Structures are given as C-alpha cells and as structure tokens.
Simulated scan of single mutants.
Amino acid sequence: MPLSRTASLLAIYPHITSRDRLLLQLLDDHQVLTTGQIHRMLFAARRTCQLRLNELAALGLVERFRFPRDGGGSQPWHWTLGHNGQRFQAAAHERPEPTARSSNQTVQRLSANPHLTHLVLTNDFFVRLTEYARRHAEARLDRWWSEQVTHKQYLTITADGHGLWTVGDITVGFFLETDTGTEALGSRVVAKLKKYGDLIRHGGARYPVLFWLASEQREENLHRLLPGQHTTVPVATATHASDPAARVWLARGSTSRVPLTELPSDHGAPIAENPNYDNGVFLL
C-alpha cells in the first residue's frame, strides 16, 4: 500500500472498507482492543486480521503497542486509533481535528494508563458477547456503552460498562462491574450497590449488576458479603473463565446458574413519563 502516514484523509478514503470503519468506531468508543479481540469480532482468519491491521497502521489509521510478560514472552499487540484514525473519527463526528502532537499524547497516555489491564478485560466481556452473536443468529449485542458513556447517561452510576443483550425475543439490560482481584470486596465492591439502588428508587432502569470476578474464591466470598435477597438491586456473578453468554450467572440468593436472558431486567419508566429524566440523563 503506497500511501504514507502523512497522506490526506481524502487520499486514504479509497482504502477504508466498511469493516475498517466499524473497527475505527470501536476503537473510538472503547479506546483499545487486542489483535485477538479484533479477530474474534471482525475477521474469520487471524492471519487476515493481522495483515489488515498492519495495512491500517501503514496508513496511520491505527497504532499499536505491547509490553513484555512477567516471566518471559510478550503481551498481545494492543491497537488504538492512530493520528489519521483520530482525524477520520473527528471528521465523522464533527469534532475538532486533532494535531499530530495531541494524537501522539493520547496514545502515550493510554499505553501508560495504570488501568489499562482493567480496560482491556472489560472490553473482552463485550467482545465475548459479540463473538457469540457472530456464531448464533438468534443473539445480538444491541448496546455496548463504555464507562464514560454510561456515566454520562446515568450520572451517578460508575459501572465499567452497560449493555443490552438479546436472544430470540428476550432483551436484557445490565451494568458491568469488572473485578481484577485488587479491590476489597466489602468496603469497595459491595459498597457500589448503593448508587444502583439510588438509580432504581428514582425511576431509572432496574438492570442486574453483573460482577465479573477474577476467581471462584472471589465469587464465593462476594456472595457471603452481599446483602440479603430482598433488596432493590438485582445482582449476579460469574468468573473471567466463563463465557458470559452461557448459563454461568449466579444471582444473589440462588443456587443454580442461568444465562443473561433469565436475569430480571426492567428498563424503567418511559422517558416522557419520568420526571427525573432530562435530556438523556437521570437527575438524582
């Protein structure tokens, strides 16, 4: 591909496919995805994925970085928007065009973000749902909101993500809390439920809060700390080793695991009838 990273956007347009545009939008929305995650969502063959990502990098549409693994080897390549990718997304959404310096700073700050592992893991939850939907015609991920968009829409909610998941004619909304095993379960994890309860009491969505946990031991410990069964906020748990689309979710007070579509989910009062809803957000 002869075009350089400094080529004008108009010169790059003939090389941008619809799949490329989808990838650029995903990276714009969710900041970073690994090679494996992009492959599972958008490509049939890993080699084809790798070649295409290298071509997009040559055009300056994406950028990549990775770190060594403790004990040897390397982590997977992490992909984010390159300068031309940031320019393209800015044009598509009528945002100010970034300078080369600001684009470079964005990539550097992301790569050095101490919460990068948490972000990649959170994204992987939704990647797994997307991958499942690719293989099952009756399933689809209707909504995948980042932490930033979720907070903007619900104000007091600090979920790591929000989604709407449909299988057949059943749609379930949920808030995701990704656990990496570093936070105290009682003082930090369980304490998060108060804000979800406040949202429900003000007429907001009564979506289950999904705690996606680092280990089975963490899951067992969390259930021992959860409040009693008859509380406002529906809660379910599963571990990173499980497929979130499968029958893996253990609801509070339950002894059997169920799929997402069997968890209680209420979208709340219609916006027009909810006095606490104003211009896309709940006023709590």
Rank of each mutant, 00 (worst) to 15 (best):
I170L: 10
R66E: 12
A251I: 08
G168P: 03
T34K: 09
P264N: 04
L284Q: 12
H267V: 02
G253K: 08
N276W: 12
Q31K: 12
G163I: 02
L42C: 08
R47K: 10
S256I: 06
Q50M: 09
E97M: 12
G204V: 06
A112L: 11
L193T: 04
R87W: 02
L27K: 03
P259I: 03
A205R: 14
F67E: 14
E63P: 02
H202N: 13
I16C: 04
F175M: 08
A137G: 07
A251K: 08
R128D: 00
P275A: 14
G73D: 07
H83W: 15
V62S: 02
R128E: 04
T17N: 06
A241S: 13
Q25D: 11
T34V: 03
A241R: 13
L121R: 15
P14S: 05
Q217F: 03
Y277W: 15
Q50N: 10
F211Y: 14
W165P: 06
G82W: 03
D29H: 10
T117P: 02
A7C: 10
G181K: 07
A272H: 11
T239E: 10
K192P: 07
F65H: 10
L24Y: 10
T34C: 08
H230V: 00
I200K: 09
G268P: 09
N221I: 00
L121T: 11
I200N: 09
H240A: 08
L129D: 05
G82F: 05
D169N: 12
Q105R: 14
T182D: 10
D179F: 06
P68E: 07
A58E: 15
P68F: 01
A246G: 12
E183W: 01
Y277G: 00
V32Y: 01
V258H: 06
E183C: 05
A58P: 01
A90R: 03
V235I: 15
G73F: 10
L9D: 02
A57P: 01
L129G: 10
D124E: 14
T166S: 15
H93T: 08
S103P: 09
L121F: 00
G82L: 08
W144T: 02
L250M: 06
Q75C: 09
D243Y: 02
L226R: 09
T166F: 05
Q148T: 11
E219C: 11
D179K: 03
R134D: 07
A139D: 08
T80D: 01
F126Y: 15
L9Y: 01
A112G: 06
E273K: 05
A246I: 00
R40C: 05
A7D: 13
L284I: 09
R66H: 14
V120P: 00
P227Q: 11
Y207A: 13
G71L: 08
Q31N: 03
G85Q: 04
E262P: 01
R95L: 15
L59D: 04
P114M: 04
P2H: 07
T180R: 15
A272Q: 12
L116M: 07
Y207H: 14
L193F: 03
R247G: 03
T34R: 11
H118A: 09
L59N: 03
A245S: 14
A11S: 15
M41L: 13
F67W: 12
